[in-house]
Nucleic acid binder design. Structure first.
Lengths: 189, 189
DNA sequence: CCCTGATGAGACATCTGTGTCTCACGTGGG
DNA sequence: CCCACGTGAGACACAGATGTCTCATCAGGG
């Protein structure tokens, strides 16, 4: 089988452009979302039954891309610091999507999809816990807070890049350096 | 003159409850906002001509509270690190409001109110720049990024506290410690 | 060559939120 | 005591988004 038309709709591409738009304008119309994806409202509605379905699909994709990033980052291998750097690097493509989803907290209330986020949180928290046990990371910041902080920094960075305030190539560096070393100057590298 | 009724509407209180609600559910109805504030939709509409006016008022209040926090923090006095800690402590009451406003980036596009945010950004960036020049802060992270990161961490912390994932009393500590020192364990304090 | 399948454009009814209005109630002041 | 003021409740029309439909178009496969 396979698609038969000139411009078969790439589901993931539509979802990514929708995330990019909705991150900037959370009240964007279905028509605006369609236009942003370069398709018509009718086609958008053929693939996603409604706005709810679209957001659910966005959440699905976000969870799957994050899990894939976590897999690629091999969080359990090597030093926790290196694993965290890998994670930040691998999660960069999903950053706009993640930025949108973290602001849509309304989704997180009372749905089964919460399980997906819980699994992600657990894996990330495990990385921070491992770093703490290995003596790499300080123990006075809880893994749960570090997870939230990572989400927040990824969102801020994605927004800054999208807005042109910082260079896209510095994405990983900025997050990793700030999260790992903080802003205070270190006497010895 | 003065208020004559049993329950005169406290404008700031309405705005804060609106911010708390809209942070969780950005698409909340005017009716929901009114209920959350304990007033009727009619009264809400008497004080804020419409949803736009409400959000504008939210933005006004957010800017004013942030500026007040910056004033109280005395950013130009003493060590930059101490000033930053003061800033985080003083900005805590405005955190939910700030968390909402930072996610409503749609507002930041093409309006005169942008000037208020620019002034805030400038003052914060000046603090980071001062710390860098004094040798307290590292110079490979731009003040602009540090500002964005601070916004992101404040938002994450506010959301975490609101969700019960972290204790409210740790708000300042978590942000300040992570932002200043990072997650990496330091050999010497 | 025709047929299948997916798309774009547009029309249409519906629904939800919004903005405005009126009316009744209760409190505080004159 | 009565009046003024602000509020709550509800009705109402309006605007915009949504969901569904039809029809024309066009590429690829049998």
């Amino acid at each position: 089988m396979g698609y038969a038309c000139l411009m078969p709709v790439d589901r993931a591409q539509v979802l990514h452009s929708a995330a990019a738009l909705l991150t900037r304008k959370s009240t964007a119309t279905m028509d605006e979302v369609a236009r942003a994806a370069g398709i018509s409202r009718a086609t958008l509605h053929r693939h996603f039954a409604g706005r709810d379905a679209l957001v659910r699909a966005l959440e699905d994709l976000g969870i799957r891309e994050c899990e894939a990033a976590l897999d690629r980052a091999r969080l359990v291998e090597g030093r926790a610091e290196d694993a965290l750097r890998r994670l930040i690097r691998e999660i960069e493509p999903a950053a706009p999507l993640l930025a949108f989803l973290t602001t849509e907290n309304q989704l997180f209330e009372g749905d089964a999809q919460n399980e997906g986020w819980t699994r992600l949180d657990t894996r990330m928290a495990e990385l921070f816990r491992r770093g703490q046990e290995a003596g790499e990371f300080r123990i006075d910041l809880t893994p749960a807070w570090l997870c939230e902080a990572l989400y927040g920094l990824v969102g801020s960075a994605a927004w800054s890049v999208q807005d042109g305030r910082v260079a896209a190539k510095d994405f990983s560096f900025m997050i990793a350096e700030l999260l790992l070393g903080g802003v205070r100057r270190r006497v010895e590298p």
